[in-house]
Design a protein around this nucleic acid. Sequence first.
DNA 1: AGATGTTTAGCCTAAT
DNA 2: ATTAGGCTAAACATCT
Length: 254
Amino acid sequence: MPRPSRESYGDQKPPYSYISLTAMAIWSSPERMLPLSEIYRFIMDRFPYYRRNTQRWQNSLRHNLSFNDCFVKVPRRPDRPGKGAYWTLHPQAFDMFENGSLLRRRKRFKLQKGEKDNLNAELAALASFNRAFLARQAGAPPPPPLPTAGLYTPPMCPQLSPEPAEIPEVASVTILPRERPRRAFTIDALLEPEPPRSSPSPPSPMLPIPVHMPRLELMASPYVVAAQRYQAELLQAVHALRPCYLPPPPLPVA
DNA sequence: AGATGTTTAGCCTAAT
DNA sequence: ATTAGGCTAAACATCT
């Protein structure tokens, strides 16, 4: 059976739920996170059906983003102003779909109360860090250009092939075992120098999970990695402003 | 003002 | 019959 092409649904409604469509969009992006407008654009580009009645389905999609724990809202980094936050997938939500099929979910992804509280605390700390950074910047001369002024690429985030694989397609995705964030998301913790890295630990076993997605390797926690990375960049800038008060910037996460 | 985000509610369908 | 997932509408809040 030939695999259906990207546009094969034509003006017909594709058989994917909004959750699936949103997951596809997020997955297709190099950073594994997108602002709402980009999610809309992805869906409209690939599925002509959604070029009509935009108000209706976009309302539904926003409802899904807010309602489902599988989507995580990441505050924008302060040097990337714009409307709305970035949306990403919760790393534990990757096996939501039965047999990896995007056509049907295995079960609703629901975080435990404590997990949700922790996540919210992390993200709130991140947001307040951003506010503190902007406030500091407002009262000081602008910092030197940040090292990665262009496209932001999380270090552990592998790139898709330049032309993203057709979506959906059967592929094997490897999920790295969840690991603890190296730093807590508190201002104090972020202002501490990064602890020395121990010798590399032996590779952990991979957990192969078949899903209908482009081939890629997923890190444990995209938003955590992304957030840590940009906080490191911000700290470099802050350090340049107040060199006598702050510890040296963390080592580049290469 | 318009875009974005949150929440509640009701209806439908499929699975259990 | 009950439950869960999905879709839609709508009211409201917040942000740019």
